[in-house]
Design a protein around this nucleic acid. Structure first.
Lengths: 153, 153
DNA sequence: TGGAAAGTGGGGGAAAGTGGGGAAGAGTGT
DNA sequence: ACACTCTTCCCCACTTTCCCCCACTTTCCA
C-alpha cells in the first residue's frame, strides 16, 4: 500500500509503511521510496509536529537555497532558525539493504525508540514514532473531512 | 551525526557533533566537515552569539572580497568593523588526525574550556562551548517552530 | 507453489575518534 | 650565546563507531 508516482524528473511520495528500528538504529526505507539513481543519499532533518523529514538530495538543495530568502527582518532570529534547522540535519545514505542510520539526536527529537511509521507526503518522506503517529491520526482525519470537499473531485 | 552535502564545487555543512578539547587545546573536526583537497586549511574567527566561525579558505576569500563592497556610509565605522572581524581571524590547519588548535584568545571569547559542540550551517561551521549551546537551543527551537512553516516544503 | 524480490538481523574489518610522548622552534632573561 | 620554558606539530597506540557483507525469513506475484 503506497507508491512513488511518476518517474520523470522527480518522484512524488505517497503511502505509509511500518518498520521497526533494529538493534543498530537502522530504519528500513521501502523500495517505493528509493531513488533509482546511485548513490542513494538523502537528507534527514527535523520536521514539524515532532516527526522527521527525509528529502532526496535534489529537493534538499532547492530548500537550502530558499533558506537565504526567508522574509525575516530580525537577523538574530534568522541565525537561530538556521541553526535549529541545520544542526539537526544529517546526510544519510542507504546501505546495500536499503536502510538508513538514524542519528541519535534525531531519534530523540522524534521520540523514536522501536516502532516507526514511514509516510510519503509528495515532495518528502516523514518518519514518525509509531505511538506519536497513532495519536496524531485523528487530527489528520478531522482536517481531511473538512478540506476534502474543496478538492472538487 | 551530520554531514556535508553535495559533491559539486562546494560542500554544504550540516549536522552537530560533540567533542572535547584535549589537554593540548586541540579540537577534533568530524570527517564530514573536512575538505577533500590538500592541505586542509581553515580560517577560524569570532562569530555572532559568542561562538566561533570556521570557514574553508575558499569561502573565506569570497567573504573577504565582499568586505570591500560593504554599503557603509560611515568610513570610520567601516574601519572598526573590518578590524574587529579580521584581527581575531586565524588560519588553522588540520593535524594528521584531523584536529585544529584553538588559539587561546578565541577559546576565551567563546567560553570554550572543555566540551565543545561543532555544528554545520551550510556555508560555514560553528564551534560552541557545550554549555552555551545547551542554553541557546531552546531559543533556536522557538524560532524553528515559528519560521519553519514559511519554508513551504 | 516456487522463485524472486523485499525485509531482518548480526559479525567483523576498516575508518573515525582520543590521548599522550617527545622533537623542533620561538621568546625571554641572565 | 646559552639554558630554560612554552608552544606547536608530528608520530604512534589505543578505543569506538560505522558500514560492508552474508545469511536468513517473509512477502509478493506469476
Amino acid at each position: 500500500m503506497g507508491k512513488s508516482v511518476g518517474d520523470g524528473a522527480e518522484a512524488l511520495f505517497l503511502g505509509q509503511f511500518e518498520h521497526a528500528l533494529d538493534g543498530k538504529n537502522r530504519l528500513f526505507i521501502p523500495v517505493r521510496f528509493r531513488e533509482h539513481r546511485q548513490p542513494q543519499r538523502f537528507i534527514l532533518t527535523r520536521g514539524l509536529e515532532r516527526c522527521l523529514y527525509l528529502f532526496p538530495v535534489v529537493t534538499w538543495r532547492r530548500l537550502a537555497n530558499r533558506l537565504d530568502q526567508l522574509p525575516i527582518r530580525d537577523k538574530r532570529e534568522e541565525r537561530a532558525f538556521k541553526r535549529a534547522f541545520l544542526a539537526w540535519a544529517s546526510e544519510v545514505s542507504l546501505d546495500p539493504q536499503g536502510r538508513i542510520l538514524i542519528p541519535h539526536a534525531l531519534g530523540q527529537y522524534a521520540g523514536i525508540r522501536q516502532d516507526a511509521v514511514v509516510i510519503g507526503v509528495l515532495q518528502h518522506i516523514e518518519v514518525w514514532a509509531k505511538e506519536r503517529w497513532r495519536r496524531y491520526v485523528p487530527h489528520a482525519e478531522g482536517s481531511f473531512q473538512r478540506l476534502a470537499p474543496h478538492l472538487e473531485l
